[in-house]
Design a protein around this nucleic acid. Sequence first.
DNA 1: AATGAATGAGTATTCATTCAT
DNA 2: GATGAATGAATACTCATTCAT
Lengths: 201, 201, 201, 201
Amino acid sequence: MKHRPQPTRDRIIAVAVDLYLKGGLKDVTMRRIARGLRLTPMALYRHFKNKEEILLAIIEKAFIVFGEYQFRALAGKSAAERMWLAGETYMAFILEKPEFFRVLFMAPDIFEQIELTEAISERAQQTYQFLLDRVSEGIREGFLKSNEPEDLARTIWAMCHGMGSLYVGRLIDTDAEGFRIMFLKSFGHLGAGILIDAATQ
Amino acid sequence: MKHRPQPTRDRIIAVAVDLYLKGGLKDVTMRRIARGLRLTPMALYRHFKNKEEILLAIIEKAFIVFGEYQFRALAGKSAAERMWLAGETYMAFILEKPEFFRVLFMAPDIFEQIELTEAISERAQQTYQFLLDRVSEGIREGFLKSNEPEDLARTIWAMCHGMGSLYVGRLIDTDAEGFRIMFLKSFGHLGAGILIDAATQ
Amino acid sequence: MKHRPQPTRDRIIAVAVDLYLKGGLKDVTMRRIARGLRLTPMALYRHFKNKEEILLAIIEKAFIVFGEYQFRALAGKSAAERMWLAGETYMAFILEKPEFFRVLFMAPDIFEQIELTEAISERAQQTYQFLLDRVSEGIREGFLKSNEPEDLARTIWAMCHGMGSLYVGRLIDTDAEGFRIMFLKSFGHLGAGILIDAATQ
Amino acid sequence: MKHRPQPTRDRIIAVAVDLYLKGGLKDVTMRRIARGLRLTPMALYRHFKNKEEILLAIIEKAFIVFGEYQFRALAGKSAAERMWLAGETYMAFILEKPEFFRVLFMAPDIFEQIELTEAISERAQQTYQFLLDRVSEGIREGFLKSNEPEDLARTIWAMCHGMGSLYVGRLIDTDAEGFRIMFLKSFGHLGAGILIDAATQ
DNA sequence: AATGAATGAGTATTCATTCAT
DNA sequence: GATGAATGAATACTCATTCAT
């Protein structure tokens, strides 16, 4: 009746994520996690085999959350709408879960430390593929330029990722609402081009 | 006239930068720096008050190098050429000094560790301003859309920064030459837009 | 009538002995014993008060095994044969149960850890007494020098123990068959003396 | 003028040896060594790279001391005297430096922990070779049986080593003077043989 | 008969840094 | 300009064990 699914384990992850976001990987130590939970460092080993497993759990969590955001975009009724939603959910993920955005896409350190470069590049591949699917749809439906879908997808990704990185890294000085507007504007510019006469390009 | 070279101080910085570029912040320790110079760790304190000052020197170095790259773009004969060169030098910086790119734009850790968030946001501002100057020139010269130069500049920056981050973070799987092509393609797409009919946007 | 087998308790001892034989005292930990039985470490405390009791069980086991070897020598039909068999069974114990040999005669660690110096010296006394019995028999039967049976017994023991220690401690570089030959040769030399003219001694 | 040869380093070794002899390898910890010197554990790293180097230093020390004892036997004027002295110095080493005897010949653990099986087997080889030289001399001089010098040497070694091990391991209950007598008696028995009629063997 | 949660003491080691020389 | 000695705080992790269930 009462098999609560290991609340301590989840609390450990939460604290670990918190520490990572506040001070980087160097602040994610067993001692600090434990202190944050008013536990002995050793108690953590009840729930995780070692530190690496905690880091893995953080990443797994971030993966799942990001996946949920992406999935929402598939609810669009047309290819165009799904493309648009892809951008919007990406933005929403950045705005609502900036900590996980950082974990997944701005934390090369965490992935180098543990032997997990593979996992992250796999996830990167998924993200890219997801956008590539949207672009391919768009080409089929005739609203996107037909040449080089790969380049189009990558360009969109770079745009979104760049905006996200600048915002999360506090290189753009704005608040959430400001970022929302900026993001959509940039998305629009990318669609329409920024040159007066595209033909000159 | 008599050029005091402070050779040891410079060598310390050189070794520190080297360590950072090879293994990231975690490898920059007083001991390793000293070992690299066949000195005692204590000897470093003759030249720097503490470790923080050495990290500051690394960042300063990165700033200088990035500034040199940016500066090259000003050699262009026209606003259009200078804009184009701005993209190219940004790309060159990423390709030739990826680790400095990381220091400046992907390493919140190094800036949080030392109290220097201000310095980096200042640098960010400079980068943004530099691109904004190019855009303003472009509008004046009539080859860029005239509305909202800030958004245009930011969009270009996000594009470049996004491509750089994905590449340096190994989220795009390609080599230097591949990246060069991708970068220029994305730059082109951004200029021309990716929609079939920009008017529909 | 109903033979309570206390199966778990015996299995714990078996695993503990196994661990000891494979990796020495340092590998005998509650965790590893438990893992070997697919149990929680805590489960062991149902069957033993603490780790010390498990170590005692290992020693007891070694004692029993050694006793069985010695006992075989009593099957000899004559005092001379029994003496010979005493040497042979000692050798067999070394060759077939080298790790128990270590437990009993080369492992002050295990006995110092637990408060058991008494038990081992008692066992040592038994071993010595057993050889002394053989020597006394031999003197009575007239094939051993009659003076100082204690010295004779101790000399034989030192010989056997020395060979065993050198072999088990890998100070003699040979295999089991080589050791067998060496042991018997040394046993022979001890019997016959190594000087040309024993009278000179 | 006053370059005392690193007294702290030697004191560290002394304390480490002390700990080893009192409680076995498990008691040789950086913390305890430091505590014994009223130092911080970290201070030890000033003098040794790590724990392994301390263990190595212990062994090296023991090697040197043992070598000095063996060397004395070469002062004998004849082969017979040198042989006799070899036994006596072996005995003296056991009596005067039982702790080093234990380190060298009764501590497989210390050699397994660090990767040094080679060093000890090398030392074992030296000891064996030293006795073999004495035996070969003895055969040439005509006071030792001429067949199989290797077996003779090994037998002598086993005898001495066995007596030493039993004494140091407290399996023989006697004091230093008692041991001296026993050792010499056993040495004599080995020389003369223990059988009434050596020919029967 | 066994488990889950947690503890406290202890392990080697790394690091930046102070002090006296 | 540099060294030697030592410190104090941290790091991940192992172990035996207690307690409640």
